[in-house]
Amino acid sequence: MAIPLVVFSSDRIRGSVLCKAFEKGGYEPFLYSNLLKAPSVVKEKSPALLVIDTVDYFVNELMHFGELVKSLGGIKILFVAGAVIPDGIDLESVHHQWCITQPFDPMLVVSKAGELLNQQLNPQKKTEEAEKTYESTTLSEESTLFAEDRLQADLKRFLNIK
């Protein structure tokens, strides 16, 4: 059963390549470009993970997204960056990880996404970094939240009510 995830990329080609890689990895990716639509997209698709390809987004768009994402509950986010991680994005209360890939390696992104999802499925495997950014949430709360998201996504898919 494919795990739903949402990919945001302002570069349609990079985004499509990422989606192809995720499809090959057994995921069900949905591609979007407008970061400001993230809350409604998350509500509609109930993804297990958000993948944000930060390359080619303006810093102020990313900063605004950093604010928006705080209202998305416990959603986990994988940020993809080129050579450098952009400055000024406040992600303090967000469970996230960075994937730096230069040159662009979509399979590395898929592998990082798998790691991040695995942390959710097997809380004992949480990295210190994740614990630091998410210390206010207990492990059981986290896996419960994830289970709820997954259940909703499964129900929507099986009932064909997406």
């Binding site: 059981s140 896996s143 419960t144 289970a147 709820e148 259940l151 909703q152 129900l155 929507k156 009932l159 009510i161």
Partner: peptide, 18 residues
């Protein structure tokens, strides 16, 4: 589990929405 308890809320939300 708590996740099982929350499952009711999930279907409740879907029924409200759709």
């Amino acid at each position: 589990s708590q996740a099982d308890v929350n499952s009711g809320r999930v279907v409740q939300n879907l029924m409200k929405q759709y």
